[in-house]
Design a binder for these strands. Sequence first.
DNA 1: GATGAATGAGTGTTCATTCAT
DNA 2: AATGAATGAACACTCATTCAT
Lengths: 222, 222, 222, 222
Amino acid sequence: MPTLPPPSARQRRKEARPGELLDAALALFVEKGFAATRVEEVAARAGVSKGTLFLYFPSKEDLFKAVVRETIAGRLDEWNQELDAFEGSSAELLRYGLHSWWERIGMTPASGITKLIMSEARNFPEIAAFYEQEVIEPGDHLLRRVLQHGMDSGEFRPLNLELAVYSLIAPMIFLLMWKHSMAVCLPADKQFDPKAFLDSQIDLLLRGMLATPDAPTERTAP
Amino acid sequence: MPTLPPPSARQRRKEARPGELLDAALALFVEKGFAATRVEEVAARAGVSKGTLFLYFPSKEDLFKAVVRETIAGRLDEWNQELDAFEGSSAELLRYGLHSWWERIGMTPASGITKLIMSEARNFPEIAAFYEQEVIEPGDHLLRRVLQHGMDSGEFRPLNLELAVYSLIAPMIFLLMWKHSMAVCLPADKQFDPKAFLDSQIDLLLRGMLATPDAPTERTAP
Amino acid sequence: MPTLPPPSARQRRKEARPGELLDAALALFVEKGFAATRVEEVAARAGVSKGTLFLYFPSKEDLFKAVVRETIAGRLDEWNQELDAFEGSSAELLRYGLHSWWERIGMTPASGITKLIMSEARNFPEIAAFYEQEVIEPGDHLLRRVLQHGMDSGEFRPLNLELAVYSLIAPMIFLLMWKHSMAVCLPADKQFDPKAFLDSQIDLLLRGMLATPDAPTERTAP
Amino acid sequence: MPTLPPPSARQRRKEARPGELLDAALALFVEKGFAATRVEEVAARAGVSKGTLFLYFPSKEDLFKAVVRETIAGRLDEWNQELDAFEGSSAELLRYGLHSWWERIGMTPASGITKLIMSEARNFPEIAAFYEQEVIEPGDHLLRRVLQHGMDSGEFRPLNLELAVYSLIAPMIFLLMWKHSMAVCLPADKQFDPKAFLDSQIDLLLRGMLATPDAPTERTAP
DNA sequence: GATGAATGAGTGTTCATTCAT
DNA sequence: AATGAATGAACACTCATTCAT
């Protein structure tokens, strides 16, 4: 089996460039906002010169859009598949879903994208629409499926899906906003543990949603 | 007791200036962010010239700080007093508290301050600290009192106060962020009603917190 | 008769600004071309800062267009009127016209506009079209009238008007190009006197155009 | 006499490179001016990469000088020889000279060099001096010889040589400027035919210069 | 006090030039 | 020799801030 000639060091760098720039840009846009971030800073953080950035992205705004597009791209497919395959109770499913959201998004740099979009939405309405379409809407759909499934099985009491979904979205978005704003600025003794909060929050919500809320944190025995 | 002569119209305008500028600045900072807002726009929106703004605020940053300070100033005293005087159940108290928060803050332009601070916290850590000290901390304290009271009376089951408080804060902050970011950019059919969401959310949380969650939306009969 | 309050020194400066900037811009654009002229230079030459220039002209390109528009504006009306009132021979009229062109355009800074337009036409086709419409076309028309008049009176032999007109335009444009390019770069001994050239050229052309070319430089005796 | 082995195709291309680059550069400099032309465009038009251009020319300015030098190089020798060999009348000689100028220069891409130099002279005074020395001065000398010859033979009336020469140069330079600026921007109905103009112009000038201007367009019969 | 003309430091963007491959 | 990725100096344009009126 013939191997392709190994890409030169330069080639490797070239291919990595856009990614490095996008990482740097995401971090800085999240930290300082779009307007307050200088492209030179982004370039410096990616280890290149200002000019190089413009080799890959035609303008600061295009860089911004690329950051959003790349960070968001197709993140929800995995969950939809997992949902289809999931075999436990709806409560377990919810719990699993939020935990894995934290592991795959909340904990990672990608979490910043939400803060960024919330902060800049009004300056970039197309971006907001894109986020709605690519993240909120599919996420909403996914959560609805979970809740509907729980209601159909009698596990959950009847819920207003439209609103209940936002009860699940709210703590996630709150967590991201908090993490990327207040948490960065407060001393250690004012912090709280995101995972503990998530657990506590799921617990509370499940108690509120289950038809038989006696033992919401454990799977009901057969 | 001699009364002061009534201030002339001009006098009145002059005294109103800072307030008009602060209103304009709040609206624009919330809409576009600090960096992307031009002082000239603020001045124009307040109906004065650029120079005049600098007569009242020595710099754009000082204007920003004044906006935060003025919008926030001592908003929580009222609630603390109401809490002391409240005579209903803790569930009712919570319900009342969140509703009145919506009426007095959430619905008003002051609601923007939270989005603003979340967005700019990392650029202005002192502002974040100020907000923590003036809003979060007292709000946290107030909510703890409510929850503690409910627990003491046996109305609520035992809760981890530290985390439970954030379960109440989360939907509020989510609501503000959403309102000032996504909601502005989405078409009518993608919107949801904030008050309905609040109601539904309180319902859910109360079911989760009450010791006897049978009738969470109504005060338990004697 | 009440006089208007005299404009303040500042007011006076403000009103003079655009004109000063246009003068400076014309000179520099003619000298270095559009692309090679820095707006800061233009501003400096007009005695203001870079920012001030942008107070009056939204962009470098707009400045360029304004230069062309202002320098050209309605220069030919005067000649048309003089032509109507002229009482001498056509030869005298031609001679007078070219001399006064030199006095009013050729000798003045406005002469640079032609060099500028010839040099930049292909980068600014609208400008070229504007020049054609505002200068070439009316000038062409004016010259045709003169030649036609001479032919009608029998003073000139039959001419192909279309081409003959360019025989008059050619030395003018040549003179302007030469003056603003080569002449500036050559030592004194390589120069020639524009007025002497004009005289000699008119002489030559008149000899070529007159029906009785015996005494082209003097009005034919009765 | 042994012949060198024929250069390979690659070799030929390699040797042709500078020429292809010079052609591309001439065309673009003429079209857009020196400052507004990007070296990358020149390279692209010549079918090579940006880096390659700098292999042949150490800088953009050197490229410019090479363009001028190569385009101009020794164009006048031929005419001087033809002049020495010419056997017809001076009028015929002039007519022949201007026609062949049009064929060999005016019609060809080399014609652009004059527009280029006129436009850029003040940014590159050495270039202007070079052009004066290599083109104007020899051309001037050549034309003087023609006119002097005509005066010596009694064919032309006495002329101020210094000025009369520019009467011949003027229409040529005008034609080049026009062709490379206005003509490119104007619609078909505003154009004129260069050769027809040249004919008409020569006719006019000869009538003005000949001692016996009766039949300037035809050689006087013996 | 109020204005808005003026400033100049700062930033996004371009492009001639270099150099590792 | 040829490439094209990378650079950074240069430049158009913005905008917070000043200050003469």
